[in-house]
Lab assay of single mutants.
Amino acid sequence: KLPPGWEKRMFANGTVYYFNHITNASQFERPSG
Protein backbone atom coordinates (compact mmCIF):
# COMPACT_ATOMS: atom_id res chain seq x y z
CA LYS A 1 0.00 0.00 0.00
CA LEU A 2 1.21 3.48 -0.87
CA PRO A 3 1.55 6.35 1.61
CA PRO A 4 -1.38 8.79 1.90
CA GLY A 5 -1.94 10.88 -1.21
CA TRP A 6 0.04 8.64 -3.56
CA GLU A 7 -1.39 6.69 -6.46
CA LYS A 8 0.11 4.57 -9.20
CA ARG A 9 -0.29 5.98 -12.70
CA MET A 10 0.86 5.06 -16.18
CA PHE A 11 1.98 7.08 -19.18
CA ALA A 12 0.53 6.31 -22.61
CA ASN A 13 3.72 4.39 -23.47
CA GLY A 14 3.23 2.08 -20.48
CA THR A 15 5.79 3.64 -18.13
CA VAL A 16 4.58 3.47 -14.54
CA TYR A 17 5.02 6.38 -12.17
CA TYR A 18 3.61 7.55 -8.86
CA PHE A 19 1.64 10.75 -8.32
CA ASN A 20 0.74 12.50 -5.07
CA HIS A 21 -2.55 14.35 -5.46
CA ILE A 22 -1.97 16.26 -2.19
CA THR A 23 1.39 17.80 -3.12
CA ASN A 24 1.25 17.33 -6.92
CA ALA A 25 4.60 15.53 -6.66
CA SER A 26 5.44 12.77 -9.12
CA GLN A 27 8.27 10.26 -9.20
CA PHE A 28 9.29 6.98 -10.79
CA GLU A 29 10.46 5.38 -7.54
CA ARG A 30 7.78 3.74 -5.41
CA PRO A 31 7.23 6.01 -2.40
CA SER A 32 8.05 4.42 0.96
CA GLY A 33 6.07 4.82 4.15
Rank of each mutant, 00 (worst) to 15 (best):
G5K: 02
Y18N: 00
F19D: 00
N20Y: 04
L2M: 08
K1V: 14
R30L: 11
N24T: 07
K1P: 15
E29I: 08
T15D: 11
E29P: 06
F28T: 11
R9M: 10
E29Q: 10
Y17I: 07
G14T: 02
T15H: 07
N20I: 02
M10R: 10
K1D: 15
W6H: 00
S26Q: 13
Q27H: 05
Y18M: 00
A12K: 11
T23I: 05
F11C: 15
P3T: 04
P4L: 11
P31L: 01
P3D: 05
P3M: 05
R9K: 09
F11K: 11
N20P: 00
F11I: 05
P3W: 05
S32D: 12
L2R: 01
W6Q: 00
G33W: 15
P3H: 04
N13W: 06
P4V: 10
P31Y: 01
P3F: 03
N20F: 03
K8Q: 14
G14K: 04
K1S: 14
K1A: 15
Y18I: 01
G14L: 04
P4W: 14
F28V: 11
W6P: 00
S32R: 10
T23Q: 05
G5S: 05
L2S: 02
M10W: 12
Y18Q: 00
F11A: 14
S32Y: 13
S26Y: 13
G5L: 04
N24V: 04
V16E: 10
N24I: 04
F11T: 15
L2N: 02
T23N: 07
K1Y: 12
A25N: 09
Y17D: 03
G5V: 04
N13G: 07
Y18F: 08
S32I: 13
K1F: 13
A12C: 13
K1W: 13
S26D: 03
K8N: 03
M10Y: 14
V16F: 12
G33T: 13
T23L: 07
K1Q: 15
P4K: 10
V16D: 04
G14A: 03
R30E: 10
Q27L: 06
N24M: 13
V16G: 03
F28P: 07
A25T: 14
Y17Q: 03
M10S: 10
P31D: 01
N13Y: 03
T15Y: 07
A12L: 09
E7D: 05
N13I: 02
N24K: 13
N13K: 03
G5F: 09
T23F: 06
S32N: 13
N13F: 03
G5M: 06
E29W: 09
K8V: 15
T15K: 12
G14E: 03
W6A: 00
I22W: 10
K8L: 14
L2A: 03
R9H: 06
R9T: 03
N20V: 01
G14Q: 05
E7F: 06
A12V: 08
P4H: 12
N20W: 03
E7T: 09
P31V: 02
V16Y: 11
N24W: 06
M10A: 10
Y18P: 00
E7Q: 08
P31T: 01
P3G: 07
P31E: 01
F19S: 01
I22Y: 12
F28A: 08
M10G: 05
G14H: 02
W6F: 01
R30P: 13
T23V: 04
T23R: 04
V16S: 07
T15I: 12
S26F: 15
P31W: 02
G14N: 05
P31S: 01
F11P: 02
G33Y: 14
Y18D: 00
Y17M: 06
Q27A: 06
N24P: 01
Y17G: 03
G33S: 13
L2Q: 02
I22D: 09
P31F: 01
R9F: 07
E7P: 00
G33I: 14
M10K: 10
T23M: 06
F11S: 15
M10I: 12
N20M: 02
V16I: 14
P4Y: 14
R9W: 04
F28S: 09
A25Y: 08
G5N: 09
Q27K: 04
E29S: 07
Q27T: 10
S32V: 13
G5I: 03
L2K: 06
K8A: 12
T23W: 05
T23D: 05
F28D: 06
P4G: 08
A12N: 09
N13R: 03
R30W: 12
W6K: 00
Y17H: 03
K8Y: 09
S32P: 11
N13M: 03
